[in-house]
Structures are given as structure tokens and as C-alpha cells.
Amino acid sequence: MKQMIEKATNLPSIPEVVQKLIASMNDDDVSTEMLANIISGDQAITAKVLRLANSAHFGRQRKVGSVKDALVVSGRDALRTLVLSIGLVSSFKAPASFDLKAYWRRSFMMANRAKWLAKLNKADAEVAYTCGLLHGIGEYLIHIVEPELAQTIDQQVNEGAARRKTQLELFGFDYTMAGSELARYWKFPDEIADAILWQQQPAGSGALLPYPTLLYLARYMIVYQDQINEGKFDELPLKLVHAAHLGLEQTYSRMRSFTEDESDIYSMLQ
């Protein structure tokens, strides 16, 4: 997979500001001023940050006129996550057969839920959001490097085949493995790459990892949202909830109280 990624000539070129922000995720000592300087170096991204920061999406009480202002009102980690989102959305291109808008909509849905659930296991909410945002990059990668085979897999899945099993049979790896490798190639922190790899098996590494657990539960929330709204949790993975030492009633409450405005997602895609 690593060789496949390195040889791919049509992978998106990640903006320099995003590359620097990814590097800063491994640096606990990065200052607010340093982040402001990094973000301000890209005029297009800065303009979108300020537009979003002053939109109803963020409900600001006062005008945000600079990146430094946005850092003050949003917080360092939240703004860094916002810029990562903007930079990745703006840089991703895909074959005509790949519905990029649907891909990002699903990614933001996962990100919002993972962030909302992070309180349950005391995980970092912004890291959880980033894990959700990137959970499907392996699927994107497969469509970029093998568009025809990816289309064949999509057709088989539509006919009832299991996606990961079909990918393993045709490629020898699936979208979780490909996504994790791409995250490492882009130098995201190991905990994010591991979350992508183990999102379908939170204890697959030999330990129950917090961020794969959040992704697993976030996916459950998407699939069973109607039942959750009715207060029904028949399909909730109870073994996972108990193994992660999450309070059952607290988990129910957290999931039921989640709300999402679709306009929030689309504001990120414009």
C-alpha cells in the first residue's frame, strides 16, 4: 500500500498550511501566535475561516476580524480542526464515478458524532472530530488509484456484497488499511491513523482504543438514528459499551440529545 501511495500521481496536493497544521498536532508547545501565522499564510483559507467564523454556524456574538480573533473565540484546537477541514475539502478531487459531495457529507456526519461522543470516554473532542473526518479516506484513495476496480466493487456492494471483504479479495487490503496508510503518509498522528485502521474492530490491536470506539459508535448513530430518536437501542453494541467502561444510561442520553443541522455541514462544503 505504501508503494501504491508513493507511486500515485493523482493524489490531492495538500495545501502547505494544512501540512504545517498536521505537523503541529504532534507539538504540544505550539503557540497561538505560531498557529495564527501559519493559517494567515494562506489567503484563500484565511478568507473562508473568517467567513465561517462570522456565520450563524458558529453563533459568534462579536465580529471576528482576524485569524488571531478567531483563535481567541474558537480556541486553538477547534480552529486548527476547522482549517484542516477547509484545506482537505478544497484539495480533494475525484473521478466522475465517485460522489465527492456525498463522501464529505458522510465524513462530517461521522466527525460531528465522534466529537459529540468524546465526552463519554474523556477523549480529545477535536482529535475525535479529525478521526471522523478522515475515517473514509481509504475509500477515496481506492477510487483515486483504481477507479475502474472501485466502481466494480461499488456495483457488487449495491448487489449485497460486503465492501471490506470484496476489497480484501480484489486488492489484498480494505479501505481501513488504505486510509490508515494514507494518514501516516500525510504524517497525521499515530492515534488518528490507528483510529482509521481499527474503526470496525476497536479492540483489533489487542487493546480497546478510545478513538476507534468513538468511530464505531458514531457509525451506529448514523445507521440507527431513527431508532435512537424513538429511544430504541436494540442494536447498540452493548459489549463494546461495557468494555469501554461507558455508562449505559449516559451513552443513551448522549446519543439521544445529539442534534445536527444539515446547513452546518453544507457551509463547510461551499
Results as ranks from 00 to 15, higher is better:
Asp28Leu: 08
Asp28Phe: 10
Asp29Gln: 15
Asp29Asn: 11
Val30Gln: 11
Ser31Trp: 06
Ser31Met: 08
Thr32Arg: 13
Thr32Lys: 13
Glu33Cys: 00
Glu33Thr: 12
Met34Glu: 14
Met34Ala: 15
Leu35Asn: 08
Leu35Pro: 01
Leu35Ala: 08
Asn37Ala: 14
Asn37Pro: 00
Ile38His: 09
Ile38Phe: 09
Ile39Pro: 04
Gly41Arg: 08
Asp42Gly: 10
Asp42Trp: 06
Gln43Glu: 13
Ala44Asp: 15
Ile45Cys: 10
Ile45Tyr: 07
Thr46Tyr: 12
Thr46Lys: 15
Thr46Asp: 05
Ala47Phe: 04
Ala47Thr: 12
Lys48Phe: 05
Val49Thr: 10
Val49Phe: 01
Val49Asn: 02
Leu50Ser: 03
Leu52Ala: 03
Leu52Ile: 14
Ala53Asp: 00
Asn54Gln: 07
Asn54Asp: 08
Ser55Phe: 02
His57Asn: 10
Phe58Tyr: 15
Phe58Cys: 15
Gly59Ser: 13
Arg62Trp: 14
Lys63Arg: 12
Lys63Trp: 15
Val64Leu: 07
Val64Ala: 09
Gly65Trp: 05
Gly65Ser: 10
Ser66Cys: 11
Val67Pro: 04
Asp69Ala: 08
Asp69Gln: 08
Ala70Ser: 13
Ala70Ile: 07
Val72Thr: 14
Val72Ser: 10
Val73Cys: 08
Val73Phe: 14
Val73Gln: 14
Val73Leu: 12
Val73Lys: 12
Val73Ala: 11
Ser74Asp: 15
Ser74Met: 15
Ser74Glu: 14
Gly75Leu: 08
Gly75Phe: 06
Gly75Ser: 05
Arg76Met: 09
Arg76Ile: 04
Arg76His: 13
Ala78Gln: 09
Leu79Asp: 05
Arg80His: 07
Arg80Asn: 13
Thr81Asp: 11
Val83Thr: 01
Val83Cys: 05
Leu84Ala: 00
Leu84Trp: 02
Leu84Lys: 04
Ser85Glu: 11
Ser85Trp: 00
Ser85Arg: 12
Ile86Gln: 05
Gly87Leu: 03
Gly87Asp: 02
Val89Met: 00
Ser90Asn: 14
Ser90Cys: 02
Ser90Leu: 06
Ser90His: 07
Ser90Asp: 12
Ser91Gln: 00
Phe92Ser: 00
Lys93Tyr: 06
Lys93Met: 14
Pro95Gln: 10
Pro95Tyr: 06
Ala96Tyr: 07
Ala96Gln: 11
Ser97Cys: 08
Ser97Phe: 01
Ser97Ile: 11
Phe98Pro: 03
Leu100Gly: 02
Leu100Asp: 01
Lys101Phe: 03
Ala102Ser: 10
Ala102Met: 09
Ala102Arg: 10
Ala102Phe: 05
Phe108Trp: 04
Phe108Ala: 00
Met110Ser: 10
Ala111Glu: 03
Asn112Arg: 12
Asn112Gln: 13
Asn112Thr: 07
Arg113Pro: 02
Trp116Leu: 12
Leu117Gln: 04
Leu117Gly: 02
Ala118Cys: 06
Ala118Pro: 00
Lys119Thr: 14
Lys119Gly: 13
Leu120Ala: 03
Ala123Ser: 15
Ala123Pro: 00
Ala125Arg: 09
Ala125Gln: 12
Glu126Ile: 07
Glu126Cys: 04
Glu126Met: 13
Glu126Gly: 02
Ala128Tyr: 02
Tyr129Asn: 05
Thr130Cys: 09
Thr130Ser: 11
Cys131Asp: 01
Cys131Pro: 01
Leu133Asn: 04
Leu133Asp: 00
Leu133Thr: 02
